[in-house]
C-alpha cells in the first residue's frame, strides 16, 4: 500500500493547484465567500438544543442554522458552551460520562438525534478537528490519513490519501516521509494531518473546535487559509476565542453567552454593527 509517487493527473481535481497560497497575507483580508462551490454540502440546523453535564445545564434551548458551504464562527467567552455545541452536532457530547442532550440537530432535514440513527454513521458524515492536534501515535503519516477509511471499513486508495493531504496543504511537506510516525511532525503540521484525516472520510460538515489555539501564528494562518479553501466542499463550523480569526475566516458569526445564542449574522455586521449590546461589549473587548 505505497502511495502513488506521481501526482494525480485528473484535470478537474481542485487540489492539483497548490492549496496553500504563497502569500499568507491574502488570507488575512479574506472575509466573503469567493470560492466557487464545487460540491454541495449540507445545512446544519439546531432546534431547541439542550445539553447537560450531570446537573449542569450548559446549553439552553439553542436554535441556530449553519448555512451550507459557508464557514460559521462560534464566538463567546470561555464557558459559554461553544465547544459543547459542536460536540452535540456529531454526538461526541454523549461520550463524556454523565453528559446528555435533547432537542434536534438536523443535517439537511435529517435529525441526527433520531433514535433510529446510527451514531457511527453520523460521525462519518460530520468530521471534527480538535483543539489539540491528536494524530494516532502508533501510526505513520500515511496510516493516520488512511485511519478514518480503515476504521470505517473502506478500501484505502493511496491516491485518495494523497488528495486528502493535498487538500490539507500538507502533501508537499510530507510526501517523502509518509512512512514516518505522525507524531514526528511539528504542531501545525500535526493539526493539518488531523484535518487531512478528517477530510479523507469525505464528510459533508467539518467541525473545528479551536483548531489553532495550540499553534504558532504562522501555522494558524495556514489553518485559516485552509478553512477558506475547504468551504467549497464542506460546511464549516469553527469555534474560536480569537475574534480576529473569526473576522478573517467566517462568513457568518454567532455570539454565545451562558449557553444561549445572543446573536447570529454576517461576520462583517456582527463585528461592525451588532444589534445586541452584549455582542458589542464582547467584540469591542469590554468583557471576556
Amino acid at each position: 500500500m505505497t502511495p502513488d509517487p506521481t501526482p494525480l493527473t485528473v484535470t478537474d481535481e481542485p487540489h492539483t493547484e497548490p492549496v496553500v497560497s504563497p502569500s499568507l497575507a491574502s488570507a488575512a483580508t479574506h472575509t466573503a465567500t469567493t470560492e466557487p462551490v464545487q460540491r454541495e454540502a449540507r445545512t446544519i440546523t439546531l432546534e431547541k438544543l439542550n445539553a447537560w453535564y450531570g446537573d449542569q445545564h450548559s446549553i439552553k434551548d439553542l436554535s441556530l442554522t449553519f448555512a451550507p458551504n459557508q464557514a460559521t464562527a462560534l464566538i463567546g467567552p470561555s464557558g459559554s458552551g461553544k465547544s459543547t455545541v459542536v460536540r452535540c452536532i456529531n454526538r461526541m457530547h454523549e461520550e463524556i460520562p454523565g453528559a446528555r442532550a435533547s432537542g434536534a440537530v438536523k443535517l439537511d432535514d435529517f435529525d441526527v438525534y433520531d433514535p433510529k440513527v446510527d451514531v457511527v454513521a453520523v460521525r462519518r458524515a460530520i468530521g471534527m478537528v480538535f483543539q489539540k492536534p491528536n494524530p494516532f501515535p502508533t501510526m505513520s503519516i500515511f496510516d493516520n490519513v488512511a485511519s478514518g477509511l480503515r476504521l470505517t471499513a473502506r478500501k484505502v486508495d493511496p491516491g485518495h490519501v494523497e488528495s486528502a493531504l493535498r487538500d490539507a496543504g500538507l502533501w508537499e511537506e510530507v510526501k517523502d516521509r509518509l512512512r514516518k510516525p505522525g507524531i514526528g511532525l511539528s504542531g501545525g503540521q500535526q493539526q493539518r494531518l488531523c484535518i487531512a484525516r478528517a477530510l479523507a472520510v469525505e464528510p459533508d460538515v467539518l467541525l473545528m473546535d479551536e483548531p489553532a489555539s495550540a499553534l504558532d501564528p504562522i501555522s494558524t494562518l495556514k489553518i485559516e487559509e485552509l478553512v477558506q479553501e475547504l468551504k467549497s466542499r464542506v460546511t464549516i463550523v469553527i469555534v474560536t476565542h480569537n475574534m480576529q480569526q473569526a473576522a478573517r475566516v467566517a462568513d457568518q458569526t454567532a455570539f454565545m453567552l451562558d449557553g444561549q445564542l445572543v446573536e447570529i449574522g454576517p461576520t462583517s455586521r456582527i463585528f461592525t454593527n451588532p444589534t445586541d449590546s452584549r455582542t458589542e461589549e464582547y467584540v469591542t473587548g469590554k468583557f471576556g
Binding site: 481535481e13 464545487q38 441526527v112 440513527v117 446510527d118 477509511l149 491516491g159 488528495s163
Partner: peptide, 19 residues
C-alpha cells in the same frame, strides 16, 4: 472531485444514516 473519491462519499438520502 476525482472519480475514485466519489465512490467513497457517504450516499445521500435518509437511508444512509439509519441503523
Amino acid at each position: 472531485m476525482a472519480s475514485a473519491p466519489e465512490t467513497l462519499q457517504v450516499p445521500r438520502g435518509r437511508s444512509s444514516l439509519e441503523r
